[in-house]
C-alpha cells in the first residue's frame, strides 16, 4: 500500500469532527498521536486515503468505525485506589449525609464515568464493603460507563496486572482477587455487583436515561474537554444527580470553573461538589 499521510488540513478537519462527536479536543501537541491512529485505521479499513476514510466515518450508518477509532483515541490509564482520599470522603462524609437525607427506600446509586478498565468502580465497591458498615443495611448500585467499548469489555472481565493493583492493601488483594499467572482476577461477586455501560458524555441521547444518582465520580476526564464541553458535561451531571447528590472530580479539576450550579463542600478528606437540595 502507498504511504498514507495526514495533511494539516486533514488534521484540522478530523479534529473538528471528532470534537463534535465526542467532546474531546486534541491540541497541536497531540498531532503525532492522532496521525498514527488515523493511519492505522485507514490501513485496517483499506480506505486508501484520509479522504475515503473520513467519508466512511461520516456516513457509516452503524458508526462502528467511529467507535473503533474512539476506542483507539481515548486514554485508559488508571489503577486501584487511585486518589483514595475521595473514597475516604465517600464513606466518612458523603454517604452518611445521603443516608441521613434520604426519604425513600430506593438504593443509593453511584455513577462512575469514565469507567476505563473498571479499577475505580471496583475500588469503590471494595471501599464500601470494607470501610462503610452501613452497607449491611443499605442497598447500593454502582454503574460504570465509558465511551470505549473495548475497555468496557476488559472491565467486565476484571483481569488486572500487578502494576494495576500495586496500591491496594494486601488484605483486599487476598480477599477479592485470585492470582492468574502474572495477573489478578477480581472475584465474581464484585464483577456481578457493578454494571458497565457504554455512554458518550457529550451525547444527550446517551445520557438522558442516566437519572437518580446520589454520587457521581468523574475524575480526570474533563481535562480533555474544552471549556464549553466541560460546562455541558457539568449540566448533564446536574440532571443525573438527585437534589443533594454529590460529584467528585479529579484533584486538578474544579467545578467552580465550569458551572455555578453546584455548591462546594469541604469535607475533612476531600473537596467535592453538591447539587443544591432545593434544586428542581
Amino acid at each position: 500500500m502507498a504511504d498514507i499521510s495526514i495533511s494539516e488540513q486533514d488534521f484540522e478537519k478530523f479534529r473538528e469532527f471528532f470534537y463534535r462527536k465526542s467532546g474531546i479536543q486534541f491540541d497541536d501537541s497531540k498531532r503525532y498521536f492522532v496521525d498514527k491512529r488515523l493511519i492505522e485505521r485507514i490501513e485496517a479499513t483499506q480506505s486508501g486515503s484520509f479522504r475515503n476514510y473520513f467519508m466512511l466515518l461520516r456516513v457509516q450508518a452503524s458508526n462502528a468505525e467511529l467507535q473503533t477509532l474512539t476506542n483507539l483515541m481515548t486514554v485508559n490509564e488508571t489503577y486501584f485506589f487511585r486518589e483514595e482520599y475521595q473514597f475516604d470522603s465517600l464513606v466518612n462524609s458523603i454517604l452518611p449525609e445521603i443516608v441521613r437525607l434520604k426519604q425513600d427506600q430506593k438504593p443509593i446509586r453511584i455513577w462512575v464515568i469514565p469507567s476505563s478498565s473498571g479499577e475505580e468502580a471496583y475500588s469503590i465497591a471494595i471501599k464500601l464493603l470494607e470501610c462503610w458498615p452501613a452497607i449491611n443495611e443499605v442497598d447500593v448500585e454502582i454503574i460504570s460507563s465509558d465511551i470505549d467499548t473495548h475497555i468496557l469489555g476488559q472491565a467486565r472481565q476484571g483481569l488486572y496486572s500487578a502494576r494495576s493493583v500495586a496500591q491496594m492493601p494486601t488484605r483486599y488483594l487476598q480477599q477479592y482477587f485470585r492470582r492468574v499467572g502474572q495477573n489478578w482476577q477480581i472475584c465474581d461477586a464484585l464483577r456481578d455487583a457493578v454494571e458497565f455501560t457504554r455512554v458518550n458524555l457529550s451525547d444527550p441521547s446517551d445520557t438522558r436515561a442516566y437519572r437518580g444518582f446520589d454520587v457521581v465520580f468523574c475524575r480526570n476526564l474533563l481535562i480533555y474537554f474544552d471549556d464549553i464541553s466541560r460546562k455541558a458535561a457539568a449540566e448533564t451531571f446536574y440532571d443525573a444527580l438527585n437534589p443533594g447528590g454529590f460529584i467528585c472530580l479529579g484533584h486538578s479539576e474544579s467545578m467552580s470553573r465550569m458551572s455555578s450550579l453546584f455548591r462546594v463542600r469541604k469535607f475533612p478528606d476531600a473537596i467535592v461538589y453538591q447539587k443544591p437540595l432545593e434544586a428542581r
Binding site: N136, V138, E141, A193, V194, R211, G212
Partner: peptide, 9 residues
C-alpha cells in the same frame, strides 16, 4: 448488599 440494577437505568 451491592446490587446490580436489574434493568437499564
Amino acid at each position: 448488599p451491592l446490587i446490580k440494577p436489574g434493568q437499564t437505568p
